[in-house]
Amino acid sequence: MEGKYFFNGKDISMNLYIQIRDVIDIIMEKSNLSFPDAMGKFYHSKTYKALQNTENTLWAESAGYIADRYYEEQEEAQINK
């Protein structure tokens, strides 16, 4: 089903949406970005794509942990430019 996320047959969509919101809040605060800018940057990241793959259980980590993965990805992208 599109727009729904499942893990072991259980609907975890709300858990995932809350994680996404909290990660975007962290990005907004740490990077001094507006909500639309922070959301756009996160939605276009590999970290966001990994978060959508419910089998890897990244969604079960804290928002801070996920945001750290996002920032590591950003740092790696800067190094590889």
Rank of each mutant, 00 (worst) to 15 (best):
M1K: 09
M1P: 10
M1R: 07
K4H: 13
G9R: 11
K10N: 12
K10L: 11
D11E: 11
D11R: 11
D11F: 08
I12M: 10
M14E: 11
L16V: 15
L16G: 02
Y17I: 07
I18V: 12
R21E: 10
R21I: 00
R21K: 15
R21N: 12
R21W: 00
R21Y: 04
V23E: 06
I24R: 11
I26Y: 02
I26L: 13
I27Y: 03
I27A: 09
M28F: 00
M28Q: 15
E29M: 08
K30Q: 10
K30W: 01
S31Y: 04
S31A: 12
S31G: 03
N32D: 07
L33T: 03
S34G: 14
S34D: 11
S34Q: 10
F35M: 12
A38N: 09
A38Y: 06
A38H: 09
A38C: 08
M39C: 14
G40W: 06
F42Q: 10
Y43N: 12
H44A: 15
H44K: 14
K46D: 11
T47D: 05
T47H: 03
Y48V: 08
K49H: 08
A50E: 13
A50Q: 12
L51H: 05
Q52S: 09
Q52D: 02
N53D: 15
N53C: 07
T54M: 10
T54D: 07
E55N: 15
E55D: 15
E55L: 13
T57Y: 10
W59S: 09
W59R: 09
W59V: 10
W59T: 10
E61M: 12
E61I: 00
A63K: 07
G64T: 05
G64K: 11
Y65M: 08
I66N: 01
I66V: 15
I66F: 01
I66G: 01
A67S: 13
D68N: 08
D68V: 00
Y70K: 04
Y71E: 12
Y71W: 03
E72R: 08
E72V: 01
E73K: 03
E73S: 02
Q74L: 04
E76F: 05
Q78N: 12
I79T: 08
N80R: 13
K81C: 11
